[in-house]
Amino acid sequence: MTQHIAQEPYIALKGISKAYNIGGQAVPIFSGLDLCIPHGDFVAVMGPSGSGKSTLLNMLAGIDRPDAGSLRIGASHLDQMGEAARSSWRAHHMGIVFQFYNLLPILTAAENVELPLLLKPLSRRERRIRVERVLDLVGLGGRERQYPGVMSGGQQQRVGIARAIVCDPGLLLCDEPTGDLDRKSADEILEMLCFLNRQLGKTIVMVTHDPQAALHAKRTLHLDKGDFVEERRAA
């Protein structure tokens, strides 16, 4: 039985439908979308603007809900969970990295990273130790007290990544994590994601417009007209 579960994909979407009400009309984004992602995968999702990439990511993050279909991640059936349950699920199982970092400007780098830890039963000391550890991991040791406003885009995105992994979630969702960065910073961030995927076993779903970024993933899915076309699979 355990054997069987272990072989099941980590993320399973079946028959997902989603429509948005635009100007009084229901505009379908997905109708009957299926997707399986195994444990430890690193998937890049590409596609034209408006094809529903962010919508998909939002559903995986439990922020948005499908109109129909089933959405399971690990043992959690997100489509059947209420707001409070999904919120708690996010706190424990998922980290998210945004294109524009979305750090709180009133908090220092360390405090931004500490935010998700406030939701856990940890002492002040334990929280500090964890924050220091992940900031070291993303190469920002010594910048704990800096505010996002004085940091470069690449540094801010590292803080964003540190915040996403500080609770040690199994799943990392990234919405165009390098979209706002120069090539060099972008490559550093992508290297970091590869490291998290290979060394720490995080499952990563990354939306991107950048074919070079997609090359870092294990496979690339192309989203068009509400369905997937697999483009490339790394050797």
Partner: peptide
């Protein structure tokens, strides 16, 4: 509201 949205994605519940 944007930042509050960020907090919600991090898992902050309505109550919090």
């Amino acid at each position: 509201l944007f930042e509050i949205g960020v907090l919600k994605t991090l898992g902050f519940s309505q109550t919090r």
